[in-house]
Simulated assay, not measured.
Amino acid sequence: MPMPQAGDTAPGFQLPDQDGNSVSLSQHAGKHVVLYFYPKDDTPGCTTEACDFRDEHSALGAAGAVVLGVSADSTERHRKFATKYSLPFPLLADPGHQVLEAYGVWGEKSLYGRKFQGITRATFLIGPDGRVKQAWPKVKVSGHVAEVLAALGAKGAAPAASTPAPAKPAAPAKKPAPAKKATGTRAVKKATPAKQATARKAPAPAKKSATGKTAAKKAGRARR
Score class of each variant (00 low, 15 high):
161 A>S: 05
178 P>I: 06
202 A>L: 09
138 K>H: 15
127 G>A: 15
149 L>Y: 09
21 N>H: 10
159 P>M: 05
135 A>C: 08
218 K>M: 01
40 K>N: 10
20 G>I: 14
172 P>M: 06
116 F>P: 13
88 P>Q: 05
140 K>W: 10
201 K>Y: 00
211 T>H: 01
133 K>Q: 14
40 K>A: 12
74 S>F: 03
143 G>S: 08
142 S>W: 06
26 S>K: 15
192 T>S: 13
93 A>C: 10
80 K>G: 13
175 K>H: 03
162 S>Q: 12
206 A>E: 11
116 F>H: 12
119 I>Y: 11
78 H>V: 10
199 A>L: 05
165 A>I: 00
142 S>E: 14
84 K>L: 10
105 V>R: 04
121 R>K: 05
43 T>Y: 06
159 P>N: 03
158 A>W: 01
39 P>L: 13
177 A>M: 05
127 G>Y: 13
142 S>H: 13
1 M>W: 02
44 P>Q: 06
37 F>P: 14
126 I>K: 05
96 G>C: 02
58 S>Q: 15
12 G>R: 14
150 A>S: 11
5 Q>W: 05
95 P>W: 00
118 G>Q: 06
200 R>C: 00
183 T>I: 00
17 D>R: 04
128 P>N: 02
87 L>M: 10
5 Q>C: 02
140 K>C: 11
53 F>R: 09
170 A>R: 01
212 G>W: 04
31 K>Y: 04
187 A>N: 05
140 K>Q: 14
29 A>F: 00
167 A>M: 01
104 G>W: 04
193 P>F: 04
66 V>C: 06
161 A>F: 01
